[in-house]
Amino acid sequence: MKTRRSVSPGRIALFVTMLAIAVAMLYPFWVMITDSLHTQSQFISGSGFSLGSWRQLSAALPVGRQVLNSTLICTVSIFVILAVGLPAGFAFAKLRFRASSLVFLGVVSAMMVPLQAIVMPEFVNITRIGLTSGYFGAVLVYAALGTPFSIFLFTTYFRGVPDELVEAGIVDGLGYVGALWRLVVPIAVPAIATVTVLQFIQIWDDLLVGLLFIQNTADRPITVGLAALASGRTTSIPQLMAGSFVSALPAMLVYLGFQRYLVKGLTMGIDR
């Protein structure tokens, strides 16, 4: 194979094409960074650079607080999704009970329900039980929306785990709870990582749930903060871009770190 790596004109053209695509894909980052390096007046006049927008960022947008809010909401939601999804996946794959495949089908079809279809009743329900102050309403909605997919993924994954492994554990003295946490979960790390990353990105990047189900301005996640800032009348675009860049950073890091699981997880149901 090494000998075929000699540089042909075709491959150079290919490389240049790929470089061009890379430039296009990096464009959002370039916009965020360059636009943020102006003050508002420099931005309007189109010349000069300054870190001023970064320095004043926290005045316009409580970035630190909002990133923290986003982090908390993500963490708790994902924790709930894993805590209910792992046992359910185990139950559907290994502890089949009466009508379990029918129930499974029902849960999986819930994947198809777009939030907008149920957002009105959901909003009224959550408001009535008083969960729109604080994070918990949003966490519940995120968890409910993420659970069907995670159950689908975990069930598929656990079906691939040999029954004998669970049986060996049971004969060795484990109960079903023990078999789940001490045998099945440690083996399911790739599936757990997939669910974690996909849900992290989804929740971190979401706007609608945060917008509706979190009424306290102080509890807002970063996406809502940005959207609110953007819809303001006297928005400083450099500051907006600085905030955007900050908000994009955590999801990007998670994404790059777990990329290899993601490819596997996305195609777990189809690629066999």
């Binding site: 894909m25 959002p28 990105i201 990047d205 979401d206 996406t223 959207a227 907006l240 994009a248 990007m252």
Partner: peptide, 17 residues
Amino acid sequence: SIYFLPTAISWVVLGLV
């Protein structure tokens, strides 16, 4: 990695860009 990177950006931010 570069091609996949924008996937991690919130659509709110992509909309702003």
